[in-house]
């Protein structure tokens, strides 16, 4: 039985892929403005949010991240003109795919943070960490097994 104290003790680990030109500078800007952003974020600087492959996001989860953020330039502001157009399609589809396999899609978030948007960086990171804290540890979500449920019936149906 999970107690309230356990929930309190859980500090989410969040990997954030930040684009070099906007979001990484946005994080800097948040720091310079002395805005509080959670220490749960592990930033990984990439040259473009378009560089973030689904493999990288999945590996972050495999390595124990409870949540993954992909932050990049706003559409139209991409340093590489339209590379982030691919990011939005890729991450949206990956979120859906996670949902279909039963991994909470809310654990992956995509947002745009420009280099001047320090306050937005602080806000989206804070909101996301709170969200992941509510969801609880990833390991718990994945280890949780259902008792004899309709799943077994379904498995039998599929495999004959």
């Amino acid at each position: 039985m999970e107690t309230n104290e356990d929930k309190q003790a859980f500090e989410p680990k969040v990997v954030a892929f930040l684009c070099n030109w906007c979001s990484y500078a946005g994080a800097d800007s948040a720091g310079i403005s002395r805005l509080k952003s959670p220490a749960n974020i592990l930033p990984i600087r990439v040259m473009c949010s378009g560089r973030v492959s689904p493999e990288m996001i999945l590996r972050a989860f495999r390595s124990g991240a409870d949540g993954v953020m992909v932050l990049g330039c706003h559409i139209g502001d991409c340093h590489y003109i339209d590379a982030n157009h691919r990011t939005v399609k890729r991450v949206t589809l990956l979120q859906n795919l996670l949902g279909y396999t039963g991994i909470n899609p809310d654990r992956l978030v995509l947002d745009w943070v420009s280099s001047s948007e320090g306050p937005k960086f602080a806000k989206v990171t804070r909101k996301f960490v709170e969200k992941v804290r509510e969801l609880g540890p990833m390991a718990e979500e994945m280890g949780k097994s259902l008792p004899a449920s309709k799943i077994n019936v379904l498995v039998e149906e599929v495999t004959g």
Partner: peptide
């Protein structure tokens, strides 16, 4: 017909299903 059936499953049930698979 499995696909429509699958769409009605909760997140926990989906994970349990794919974990087994």
């Amino acid at each position: 017909p499995m696909v429509a059936e699958y769409e009605n499953l909760s997140r926990e049930e989906r994970w349990d299903f794919w974990n087994q698979q």
